[in-house]
């Protein structure tokens, strides 16, 4: 009797399968291991490069960012919820663990001027381009 009751509880929530307006194939975060994780978007102009990545629920204090030349390495960890005895997962889709990723940038950047922000689960890193590499405008002088 008790066992039946527990099994029934496990079915309290079932994703509503007929919900067709959801773009099902495009689950928001790909699970680690399938592609390079975490996925990043990279923006640039001639003066700087910006990287964004989605790491919701990660403690920003524990995020390590290393910039060398034209590469940036991110390291972070997300810990799973610690369940007490008798508690159990009905569904576990979110990623957990320690991750590290190195990304190649389109140019060398000034490592000491990198700025990182973490807001609403999104990590935003702005990296100014190394001065020596910035394109220069050469004025043509009239003879």
């Amino acid at each position: 009797m008790l066992i039946r009751e527990l099994q029934r509880l496990g079915n309290l929530l079932e994703p509503w399968r007929e919900f067709d307006s959801i773009n099902r194939e495009a689950f928001r975060t790909l699970s680690p291991g399938r592609v390079e994780f975490p996925p990043v978007n990279l923006w640039k102009n001639e003066n700087k490069a910006v990287i964004t990545t989605e790491i919701p629920g990660v403690d920003p204090e524990g995020v390590e960012i290393n910039v060398v030349g034209n590469t940036i390495t991110l390291r972070f960890e997300r810990k799973p919820e610690e369940l007490k005895e008798g508690e159990s997962y009905t569904r576990k889709e979110r990623w957990y663990g320690e991750f590290s990723r190195t990304i190649e940038l389109p140019f060398n950047v000034q490592g000491d001027k990198v700025e990182a922000k973490f807001s609403r689960g999104i990590l935003y890193i702005e990296m100014p381009r190394a001065e020596a590499e910035k394109p220069r405008k050469i004025t043509v002088q009239a003879e």
Partner: peptide
Amino acid sequence: KIYAPVVDIFETANNILIVADMPGV
């Protein structure tokens, strides 16, 4: 575009918890 956020669902003695990753929200 609309994405389905990934979720964890777990059960405690008194509650059901749904935890969803929704970066940007």
